[in-house]
């Protein structure tokens, strides 16, 4: 089938780009794009397909980063085991946080998740003996039997890539699974789903935990890759940044989130070395302002985000394409509105 072929070519291209990335840009930035992209995809799974806007996803990204760092540093486990420790901690936190937050809707849900993330931030800051407080965890080793993987190296990038791809695959699979259908149904019409016999809260908690597990996978790889875990991992601006990436890319498009992450990170990197000045202010010092302006411009001109708009442009020419699968359609807008 033509559509299927096009999809396969798309995935093949993405894989080639992922493999070539550390040759084109420096490996540290390449890793950032891959793991922040996964973080953003994890949030889009919850926001775009579950209709739930979490404003506290730094809790899972950060706690997993610390847990992976502690496991690697104090137990000396190989890095994939440290990642597993990080994911486990994220899941264990997501169970109670998800259970309690999904009792609230829309903006109240966002506020409750933010509150939990803030609690975790302060606990981590105060628990100096374990977390290093404001200094964070320094010099986290990355060991792999028989190999040394220096921080910021292409070697670690390639070692981490399969785990990240596993995360991406899991997100895609969840969206295109029986669970994905139920999740989208609950997002569109919760009362209807209940009347059919679906315990909707349980499904929402499962969606929340899955999303947190992927955010934890991304956060673990991020902390291990950089060799440190700092408080910034848990800061509310981290939660805000990942929401921005998802919206930039296009809510409910899954892969758009990766584009959103890449745009933000490349822009930040470019501005940090740029010598451009605007009205006497060096753009280097104002990357937040520049990113913010670009964010506003994109949201105002492409309401479905970068990727969502591209899909939208392509669809009308498709002719007799098969009915879009649940959630793969580009109409992520309403769910974002519901979520907010």
């Amino acid at each position: 089938m033509r559509v299927q072929l096009r999809h396969r070519l798309g995935y093949l291209t993405a894989l080639l780009v992922a493999l070539a990335l550390p040759q084109v840009i420096y490996p540290g930035l390449a890793l950032d794009i891959v793991v922040w992209g996964l973080f953003a995809v994890s949030l889009d799974l919850l926001l775009g397909f579950g209709g739930l806007l979490s404003f506290g996803h730094a809790a899972f990204w950060g706690s997993a980063g610390y847990a992976a760092g502690l496991a690697a540093k104090h137990l000396g486990v190989p890095f994939p085991v440290a990642v597993l420790a990080g994911v486990t901690v994220a899941v264990l936190l997501a169970l109670p946080i998800g259970y309690l937050s999904i009792r609230r809707q829309a903006i109240y849900f966002a506020m409750v998740t933010l509150a939990f993330a803030q609690m975790l931030f302060y606990v981590t800051n105060e628990w100096r003996g374990l977390t290093g407080g404001e200094n964070g965890l320094q010099a986290i080793p990355r060991t792999f039997p028989g190999l040394t993987l220096p921080s910021g190296s292409a070697a670690f990038y390639y070692a981490a890539l399969p785990l990240a791809l596993l995360g991406y695959w899991l997100a895609w699979r969840a969206v295109h699974s029986p669970f994905g259908h139920v999740l989208v149904a609950i997002r569109d019409n919760e009362a209807r789903a209940q009347a059919l016999g679906y315990p909707t809260r349980r499904y929402k908690v499962l969606g929340f935990v899955l999303s947190a597990a992927l955010a934890g996978l991304a956060g673990s790889l991020f902390a291990l890759g950089h060799g440190f875990a700092a408080l910034e991992l848990l800061h509310w601006t981290t939660s805000g940044l990942v929401v921005m990436m998802v919206i930039l890319g296009g809510v409910g498009t899954l892969w758009g989130s990766v584009i959103g992450a890449a745009v933000v990170l490349l822009l930040r990197d470019w501005l940090s070395t740029s010598t451009l000045t605007l009205a006497g202010v060096s753009l280097k010092d104002a990357w937040g302002v520049v990113t913010g302006v670009i964010f506003v411009l994109i949201v105002l001109s492409f309401r479905r985000g970068v990727w969502g708009t591209l899909l939208q442009l392509r669809l009308p020419r498709g002719g007799s394409r098969p009915a879009p699968r649940a959630g793969q359609t580009t109409a992520g807008g309403p769910s974002a509105a519901d979520g907010g």
């Binding site: 699979r173 994905g180 499904y203 499962l206």
Partner: peptide, 20 residues
């Protein structure tokens, strides 16, 4: 979706939607 509600398939996030 209504028929699926009687089964536990809905929790299987690791399975392809083709089982439907």
């Amino acid at each position: 979706l209504a028929l699926q509600a009687d089964t536990a398939l809905g929790y299987r996030f690791w399975q392809s939607e083709r089982v439907l």
